[in-house]
Nucleic acid binder design. Structure first.
Lengths: 379, 379
DNA sequence: GGAAAATTCGCAAGCGCTTGCGAATTTGTT
DNA sequence: AACAAATTCGCAAGCGCTTGCGAATTTTCC
């Protein structure tokens, strides 16, 4: 892999035409009837064997499955769905703000589903909508075997999930934005995460905080404040600490890079005297850092900044970002597990919310308060 | 939205239980038969009206559709699929390396499909695999109405698409990594893009280039070299220019941030004397920039760096990244258009590849070569 | 060998929709 | 009013699979 001098390619760009392929995979699969004839069994028995009915002996069940596998038989999902109300499909209602993480959510989820031989039927919902009942309805019609909701509904996923329970459709949700719900969901213990983060900052000597990029009515804000408060109590420093929120009172502001940038500008303009800024997510944090850096407020020397999300990117920024890690992979696995449990269960399970305590990743965007304590900001 | 002093929330974290919902959306939709009864028409006629058969008068066709819309009738996709071999599904074979962009590809595509009332059936393929015939087979079994391939197969998407044409399944592909193919696909004119970029750098005075993070056998490398060469010819500077590739001879190295970082380190270690580095993609470029910045090689003062992709992020890094914009949205629309055209066509259309010439976005990571021409790098 | 238990068979109905056909009905034309 | 053309109707078959039932067959056990 040593570098080598390169002679510039001169050949004209080739247009590859279809080459003749030796083996064309046969795309049409045979039917149950054929399989049965081949096995010298009746269609009914074969069907029952495939579906693991108790009335068929273990011996033939295995034999049937064996041959099915060997001949590459796969039941027609549509027919199966029509007839038995099973489709091998699981609906994924993705109702989260689109950012750099959200896409990988989907990809990972699709991969996980592949492993359990389920097909994803993806719909993009609206996080701001009351409920996404149209989508749920479509799922029901497609006879999905379950539904996964990746949701950041401000009021929780309850309205979305209610129709699911009513229809007896197994579901599991990843509650990304709303308050904890008594549902089959996985959610983050935001207060706990915040508490860890703030304890760290307190130890570094910070006493004056800004909160940026929050929708103030949202659970995500309230919950993090709760954690904040807990940390202050841990150290008994409530009276020394000042906290100023630079947030929004409207729910429709996206938590973007630009938003963080603007909030930081506002902070600087107002000459806000803080040593640490806690952002609603990584994008906001990075936007703020960008503004600070380009306007004479070095991070973390003059101000420490922390995010929330741990985007793939945040480890590689300058400075790298202290943030809270959502551990997407593990979380999604839990969600799927929750769903599979319900699908397998003979009767509806009682809701069992799972709380995940996210870890805090300390990186370079947070540091100790400098000895002269408050470095005067230029401008 | 002015900041305000905040009193820390003390209420305990509330667990919202399912509140009683006033309106439970009815999930079970009525059948064709009901619709027919309601319309005082026969099932056959209604079905034909809905599907736009010629034998039904325009008047009743409209009436039927009107009532169907009003009552919220949606035909059962499974039954329809079983009976007519149509499922309203389109298979999406996503066979691209996963990075920060790839996810948004999916989300955008799903949204586009929603607009034309098609459901996506997503499968993640392997860009390194010969063909993804298993997946294609599954698509065929699900009676998809078409397939969209988002592919970065090094050898083009041909092997994947061949079975599709054989099976008469409409498809359209976004060829992200392979050589141009005579297929229904959209692809980028990489040489043209590279040419624009390099012309720009030549004008800025650059004469010594490094290429980082390429798989040297790949079309993406070869094609970009072609554009490189064209730019040199444009200015007649072939003889003055030196170009050193820092790439890989293995196809399985991912084009990641870390990879760019390592390549940059290698460049510096070897004391490579260049003023501009062209990266295989944005992540690699940003990784390289990070290394340079943290090791005494200011960007763009000592070295200009350009990417390829235009991640959402690249506008917001420090420095912001000069890169080539893939215009995902427009491109995906074209792909879908291509597919819809085929679905609508009574008989197979001849392949019509569409070439997109991506634009170059000049930002802060590239600049003029400094007057002392070569700034001595530390270390 | 014979009765009970366990399997398997055949058959039929059904999932909700499409499609083709001849017959019945409506509409338009002269 | 008579006839042709255009619609619509009813009916039936079928898409590939599931499911329930009584009957036929095989296995198991004493």
């Amino acid at each position: 892999m040593a570098p080598f001098l390169f002679s510039i390619a001169k050949e004209p760009r080739a247009v590859t035409n279809f080459s003749v392929q030796p083996s064309i995979p046969d795309i049409t699969s045979h039917s149950l009837e054929e399989l049965a004839r081949h096995l010298r069994l009746s269609v009914g028995t074969v069907s029952r064997a495939l579906n693991g009915h108790p009335k068929v002996s273990p011996a033939t069940r295995e034999r049937v499955r064996e041959v099915a596998r060997a001949t590459g038989y796969v039941p027609n999902p549509l027919a199966r769905g029509l007839s038995a109300g099973k489709s091998g499909l699981v609906g994924i209602l993705f109702s989260h703000f689109v950012n750099s993480v959200s896409g990988s959510f989907l990809i990972r989820l699709v991969k996980l589903l592949e492993a359990v031989e389920l097909r994803p039927l993806i719909k993009i919902g609206n996080p701001l909508a009351e409920s996404n009942s149209d989508i749920i309805k479509d799922f029901a019609m497609m006879k999905v075997e379950g539904v996964i909701v990746i949701g950041s509904h401000l009021d929780g996923d309850t309205p979305t999930m209610r129709p699911l329970t009513d229809a007896g459709i197994p579901y599991a949700s990843l509650n990304l934005g709303g308050p904890p719900a008594m549902a089959h969901c996985v959610q983050y213990d935001r207060p706990a995460a915040e508490r860890k983060l703030v304890r760290h900052l307190l130890e570094l000597g910070h006493r004056r905080f800004a909160l940026i990029g929050f929708y103030m009515q949202s659970y995500s804000f309230v919950s993090r404040m709760e954690g904040f408060h807990a940390a202050l109590a841990d150290y008994g420093v409530e009276s020394e600490v000042e906290v100023t929120p630079f947030g929004s009172l409207r729910g429709d502001e996206e938590s973007t890079f630009d938003y963080g940038y603007r909030m930081a500008r506002q902070m600087v303009k107002e000459g806000l005297n803080v040593t640490a800024a806690l952002a609603g997510n990584d994008e906001v944090a990075l936007g703020a850092i960008r503004y600070f850096q380009t306007h004479g407020v070095p991070v973390p020397e003059a101000i420490s900044v922390a995010g929330f999300d741990n985007l793939g990117f945040s480890a590689h920024t300058t400075p790298s970002l202290t943030t809270i890690d959502l551990e997407i992979d593990r979380t999604l696995e839990l969600v799927l597990e929750l769903l599979m449990g319900q699908i397998a269960a003979p009767q509806p399970l009682p809701p069992r919310p799972i709380l995940i305590e996210p870890g805090v990743i300390f990186r370079d965007s947070t540091g100790a308060v400098a000895p002269p304590f408050r470095k005067r900001k230029r401008r």
